[in-house]
């Protein structure tokens, strides 16, 4: 071929939305530590309109030491916000599951806030595909 074409990448390198701002607002600018939170999402979304999401945070969930909030953002949707979960010692465990919309292949990020102000996070990439093939 003579001309090299200026094709946009099929998956524009994670067009940044407001995910950084939302995380900053949640953490007060502190950088969360990787760990303690475990996000569970499928590798490939069966249906971008309803992607199962689950998370759990390691914590004794006592009055002295518990998770207060968990922020979920998606960095490739038009808007990053997904949900914020609120826990107390009465929750017993810091675990929840819901179903979310993902417009394209992107990272989903969970940030957990503890009652002592410490912050933890996890990230999972979910592939959203056009589909159609078959053996």
């Amino acid at each position: 071929a003579v001309a090299v074409l200026a094709f946009g990448s099929a998956r524009p390198a994670f067009a940044k939305n407001d995910s950084d701002d939302l995380i900053k607002a949640f953490t007060g600018g502190k950088t969360p530590t990787k760990g303690k939170v475990r996000l569970d999402l499928p590798d490939i979304a069966e249906n971008g309109n309803t992607v199962p999401l689950a998370f759990s945070v390691e914590s004794p969930m006592t009055d002295a030491s518990h998770v207060t909030d968990v922020l979920i953002v998606a960095d490739g949707n038009p808007r990053a916000g997904v949900a914020t979960f609120h826990f107390s010692p009465r929750s017993g465990v810091a675990e929840a599951a819901t179903r979310i919309r993902l417009a394209e292949t992107q990272n989903v990020i969970a940030v957990a806030k503890m009652n002592d102000g410490s912050l933890f996070m996890d990230t999972r990439q979910v592939k959203v595909t056009i589909g159609g093939c078959g053996g």
Partner: peptide, 9 residues
């Protein structure tokens, strides 16, 4: 596992 992607959901 990928039936609803490989075939019509």
């Amino acid at each position: 596992p990928y039936t609803p992607i490989a075939n019509p959901r």
